[in-house]
Design a protein around this nucleic acid. Sequence first.
DNA 1: CGCGCCTTTGAAGGAGCTCAATTTAGGTGG
DNA 2: CCACCTAAATTGAGCTCCTTCAAAGGCGCG
Lengths: 245, 245
Amino acid sequence: MKATAVTPTTLKAACSQCNLRELCLPFGLTGNEIDRLDELVGTKRKIRRQHQLYRAGDDFEAIYAIRTGSFKTDVLLEDGREQVTGFQMTGEILGLDGISSEAHSCNATALEDSEVCVIPFSKLEELSREVESLQHQFHKVMSREIVRDHGVMMLLGSMRAEERLAAFLLNLSKRFMARGYSPAEFHLRMTRDEIGSYLGLKLETVSRAFSKFQDEGLVAVHQKHIRIIDLEGLKQLLTHCAKHT
Amino acid sequence: MKATAVTPTTLKAACSQCNLRELCLPFGLTGNEIDRLDELVGTKRKIRRQHQLYRAGDDFEAIYAIRTGSFKTDVLLEDGREQVTGFQMTGEILGLDGISSEAHSCNATALEDSEVCVIPFSKLEELSREVESLQHQFHKVMSREIVRDHGVMMLLGSMRAEERLAAFLLNLSKRFMARGYSPAEFHLRMTRDEIGSYLGLKLETVSRAFSKFQDEGLVAVHQKHIRIIDLEGLKQLLTHCAKHT
DNA sequence: CGCGCCTTTGAAGGAGCTCAATTTAGGTGG
DNA sequence: CCACCTAAATTGAGCTCCTTCAAAGGCGCG
């Protein structure tokens, strides 16, 4: 919480001072190990709303930990169709897609003015060869991304519109809570169109589902402001709406 | 190709002898490094058709490299809905989902009688702290899984039925080719129902799409036997079918 | 040879999409 | 401070693609 005397332009990241470290790469590391991680984490980088942290095709050199703000990642088809592959919040890691081919395979766009810690990847590999706990935590972070993606595939492949939106809201709620924010009341940083792209729905369908939830007393929706009224009701939508086989 | 004198029951894996090593974990390693990998790779394990390599909830202890045969991975919802998250072929790695929570989060089922190399994960982490090229290759394998999943999300979220099936066939074709099999003619190991689950479609829709492709002279379909007649035509389905916005 | 499972095909229905109009919020300049 | 302007969100009506339900055909295996 104590401000350190550094210039704001090339602010050095400091995991040891960061209140997100329990969610991020330093999780499970000892104080001494975190200090070593501090050394390798490069500068912070500010990204303004709607600007891109990296684009598909960019050379891969670093991964990024979100310090403040939020992002979306998306892939584009030649014909212009966009698929949002995820929304990322503070403490989450961006750029893992780039490792496989040494180039990024998606775009990462800030949903609001944001700040990321730049983690040069070759240095991370170097240090994680020495620090077992860092190596393990990094593997967990990558694996978590894979598990998360499977969840989205479940959502896109087997759920109907309202279930998808309910799952989306519950997921956001959980992540806000993990960051010390209210799990019941929050602002969406993304548009209906972006939610729709993520959920495999058209923006009108998303909007209609929001209205339906409101009519049913599950949530209160005012544009991007969401208040969850009946958490259990939302959860039941997921388990009981078993129209499919 | 030369058979080594080992008992067939607890056959020791041998990456150095394996013709899949260019597709698998040993890629990029020197001969000496591959020998060290050989040491850590445990026994091979045979899995009969329809049997499971692991189930959601099982303790995570090892990852698996497919030596022969093929698998599907799926996640189940409480109400019984199944989502196939992937089909895996020889040289591909199974079990990465388990790292994050130390328990597997999906089921892996053999589509035919198969054999996997068991790679104890803690030992893999240990060795990859010493062998840089192994560490890097393992990271690439994980990242590739993430990129693959993004592709499936694109498919499920933004494509229509026929595009999905075309993308699926083209993907299979590419992977068969990488393994030295014909890219134009192959046997599907999975049912229409499993394809449908993977593609977010009902089995009847998959069947109808196959029939349509056949009518249009794109592929010849005889049950599970597929022959791709017009590869370019299939590819064009993906780029030109831009009915969506 | 017969049984079960997988696949194919048809016909009808519905969830979500498309197109279009209206409302609301947020930013800008007078 | 208000009027204006643009982007985002809401809502309605008709349509389409995929699903659902149903029945028949084909293949493999005991």
